[in-house]
Nucleic acid binder design. Structure first.
Length: 417
RNA sequence: GUGGGUGUAGCUUAGCGGUUAAAGCGCCAGGUUGUGGCCCUGGAGAUCGAGGGUUCGAUCCCCUCCAUCCACCCCA
């Protein structure tokens, strides 16, 4: 027997209310915040991610799905994240000619070859928002505010925003220099990974989880203390807006994030009782990314949030999604004599905009009625053999009255939309 | 990539070194020949993850593999 590939999952009908609730809530908010939908391919030229996401990131180094196209010469990558994907589309289609910022959102699967565990998948769905072409910290605030509204609107409580600024091209090199010289004489105390980070990506030293490295990190200079004036102002304004609206954030000086392109504002949303896969949404500013991908210098900021992790947290919190619509009426037939009439009546109901389910197969009327009940239909309609023999039964009310087939459509509520 | 746990019907589980592997839910059918939900009865459905080994005999013991879960790591 075949089974779904490791780290992938089927979202069965039983789970769809959660998924649709999450995605529809996002859709409504995107409209309210002025984000327009974009859909991009699930695979791209590998270079988009190698250069965009960054060569030194774990995602590119060991998690990306790569494949050669059959015609040779092209190496593609299944998208491990959305940002470079969306940036490529922005450049390719000249969206810089639109009024800036260009605010886009998308939802779909992303792929990373990781060892699966709770809330971690090889194919996982992300909701992604990007605001391109604006450096104002108001946009940083806007995105964090969006996520806060989104999660709280879904009913999640006890969230915290982890916030930091990792500087820009002006101040970060100097800070990295400082960090390097701090670490230089402590490397023999640090873990093996840290020695590699020291060379390739020193900022990530601050993110090391090895317990023996924690004392070293604790004594390290923090980037917040070494931001240049513009970066410090930018960061202060973001915090000012957040505080004014009572969004619960904590400045975490050692939050650096794993993607190479981030500048200035970075943030993560974590639930209160989060396990190891606690981050449900995260993002940051990427003012240097567009140049890396061959465009003109263009500021930008975005975030991604994992649908599976949101659903996980909704279930953990006991939050019930709104139920999906049920069929209005179930059309049953007592004997074979009425079968054809029932089939055609079911079709006519549907054409009239009424959600209808038709009995099939040679089941007994009792079995058909059981079906109607299990399908949670509002009404059952029993096609009779003559005038006065057909019944419209109100299932929840357990009452019924005689209704002729020709009158049925007028007696049933039409579905909105 | 590293470490640990677990693998019995669709789901949740029970079970024991030895005749036809059990229950609840779900599914199908019936409960006096045209009607659901409760209740009752019956039925279908499991090569007990796969392969090898120990044994007179293994679902139960051992090994390998696979899958899955959890943690590390990474991140959504």
């Amino acid at each position: 027997m075949y089974q779904a590939p490791r780290g992938t999952a089927d979202v069965l009908p039983a789970d769809q209310p959660y998924w649709q609730h999450v995605i529809r809530t996002a859709e409504r908010l995107c409209a309210r915040y002025g984000y327009q939908r974009i859909d991009t391919p699930t695979f791209e030229d590998a270079g988009v991610f190698i250069h965009g996401t960054g060569e030194s990131s774990d995602i590119v180094q060991r998690e990306m799905y790569l494949f050669e196209d059959r015609d040779g010469g092209h190496t593609y990558a299944l998208r491990p994240e959305f940002t470079p994907n969306v940036m490529r589309a922005y450049l390719e289609h000249g969206l810089f000619n639109l009024p800036q910022p260009v605010k886009l959102w998308t939802v779909g699967p992303a792929f990373r070859h990781e060892r699966p565990q709770a809330g971690r998948w090889r194919q996982f769905y992300q909701l992604d928002l990007e605001a391109i072409g604006e450096a104002d910290p108001a946009i940083d605030f806007e995105l964090i505010d969006f996520l806060w509204q989104f999660y709280t609107g879904l009913g999640l409580r006890g969230l915290t925003v982890l916030l930091n600024s990792i500087g820009d091209q002006n101040c970060r090199p100097q800070y990295v220099q400082l960090l390097r010289s701090y670490y230089a004489d402590k490397l023999d105390l640090a873990c093996k990974d840290d020695r590699a980070r020291f060379e390739k990506n020193p900022l990530r030293l601050l993110d090391c989880k090895v317990s023996s490295c924690q004392p070293i990190i604790a004594g390290a200079p923090t980037i917040a203390e070494h931001l240049c004036e513009p970066c410090a102002d930018h960061f202060a304004r973001v915090q000012h807006y957040l505080a004014a609206l009572d969004i619960r954030f904590v400045v975490q000086p050692r939050l650096v994030r794993g993607l190479d392109y981030y500048t200035r504002t970075v943030f993560e949303f974590v639930p209160a009782d989060a396990g190891s896969q606690g981050t449900i949404g995260a993002g940051g500013r990427y003012d240097g990314l567009m140049e890396v991908l061959g465009g003109d210098p263009t500021p930008g900021i975005g975030f991604a949030t994992g649908i599976e992790r949101i659903v996980l947290n909704l279930k953990k919190a006991g939050i019930e999604p709104p139920p999906l619509p049920v069929p209005e009426v179930y059309v049953a037939y007592p004997t074979e004599e009425q079968r054809d009439q029932a089939v055609l009546l079911t079709a006519r109901l549907r054409h009239a905009g009424i959600g209808a389910l038709g009995a099939t197969g040679g089941r007994s009327l009792k079995a058909q009625m059981r079906h109607a009940g299990r399908a949670a239909a509002r009404f059952a309609y029993i096609v009779g053999s003559g005038p006065g023999e057909s019944w419209l039964r109100d299932l929840p009310a357990s009452s019924q009255e005689a209704v002729e087939p020709d009158d049925l459509i007028d007696r049933l509520p039409q579905r909105a939309e």
